[in-house]
């Protein structure tokens, strides 16, 4: 008690008004914001390191930028890029719809469907993609012919190796494994839709398939899209595994050209890196607009698009254009 009384200023909380201050004048002066000196020091350090690295890009001759320019649009690289895009695009679409089917099966409440879909997800999430791909490329050895038919009854079969091209096998492999992940993404999105939405749709007697496509899925997509785009980006990179089953995707081509022209290994890797960066950036832009579309109704006012922001910064709004 006495110790506290002896040091009144120290014992007081920081918000206390000191005695004898003119509260009115105090209240009229601008509040000084809190400074963050450590942040500035760290920012400075990072900038120095970044500039150091940027400098090496120009001073270190091993980067060989002129060769990067030559390889960037060369026909083999573009062909590899095409394969990467095709394999990823088909697998993206197939695994999105496949994911919906598997997720619905898992949520169906039918014990056979639930067990089957859970088993599928478990299997393909457990086995490495590379193993799935190599397995598929040896399918011709395991099942020289594939087909469907009534057990012990008539069969419809085709020759495995002749029917399934390497690209088809590659896409099947990528999709099989991707479906397992996208099914979980879709399922979590569907579960996130409020139960009241199902009840309202039921109470209005909206048919089940329309409830799904009009009411439930559009709301689920709001949380599915960001997670699924993550999956697609993973898929683009996973498609480089196709190289191991002798399909020449972007990475495979860069690798192959690198062994043919050993002096160009670094520029070729740079070329592949830049193309992967471009692919991911394009997807991120598309994602932005898709997310904006599915956000309608969930926020009171949609944020402006980057284009709208740019226009505003330049001072071209519609009112001005129409007034002119």
């Amino acid at each position: 008690m006495t110790a506290l009384a002896q040091r009144p200023t120290d014992a007081q909380p920081p918000g206390t008004l000191p005695d004898g201050i003119d509260a009115h004048r105090l209240s009229e002066r601008r509040v000084v914001p809190l400074r963050h000196p450590l942040r500035w020091v760290i920012t400075g350090l990072v900038l120095v390191l970044l500039l150091n690295f940027a400098q090496t890009l120009f001073t270190n001759p091993s980067w060989e930028w002129e060769k990067v320019g030559v390889w960037f649009f060369s026909p083999p690289i573009l062909k590899g890029l095409q394969l990467t895009i095709i394999a990823t695009a088909i697998s993206t679409v197939v695994s999105f719809f496949g994911g919906i089917v598997v997720a619905l099966a898992r949520l169906s409440g039918n014990p056979v469907l639930t067990t089957l879909s859970s088993f599928y997800i478990w299997l393909f999430r457990s086995v490495p993609l590379l193993l799935v791909l190599v397995f598929l490329f040896n399918l011709g050895n395991l099942y020289p012919e594939i087909g469907v038919g009534i057990p012990f009854g008539p069969q419809f079969t085709v020759n495995t190796v002749a029917t399934l091209t390497p690209l088809a096998l590659g896409v099947i492999g990528l999709s099989l494994s991707e479906i397992a992940y996208s099914a979980e993404v879709v399922r979590s999105g569907l579960l996130a839709v409020d139960q009241g939405q199902h009840e309202a749709a039921d109470a209005l007697g909206i048919p089940k398939h329309r409830q799904f496509t009009r009411i439930v899925l559009p709301q689920a997509l709001r949380s599915i899209v960001p997670a699924y785009v993550n999956q697609i980006i993973g898929l683009i990179k996973a498609s480089s595994l196709l190289y191991y089953v002798s399909l020449l995707d972007l990475f495979g081509i860069a690798q192959n050209l690198g062994s043919t022209y050993p002096t160009d290994v670094i520029p070729l890797l740079v070329v592949a890196t830049i193309w992967y960066l471009i692919l991911t950036s394009v997807i991120a832009i598309v994602q932005y607009y898709i997310e904006r579309f599915y956000a309608r109704g969930s926020v009171r006012v949609l944020p402006p698009t980057p284009l709208q922001r740019l226009r505003k910064a330049l001072g071209w709004n519609r009112a001005k254009v129409s007034a002119a």
Partner: peptide, 28 residues
């Protein structure tokens, strides 16, 4: 579902469809 068309239901929490406009909520 067909029978429910003859019975309207109004919920405590409204349960409007948030991604549809007001007009679309009514026409759905």
């Amino acid at each position: 579902l067909r029978q429910r068309a003859k019975i309207g239901f109004v919920f405590q929490n409204f349960n409007l469809f948030p991604h549809l406009t007001i007009l679309e909520n009514v026409t759905e």
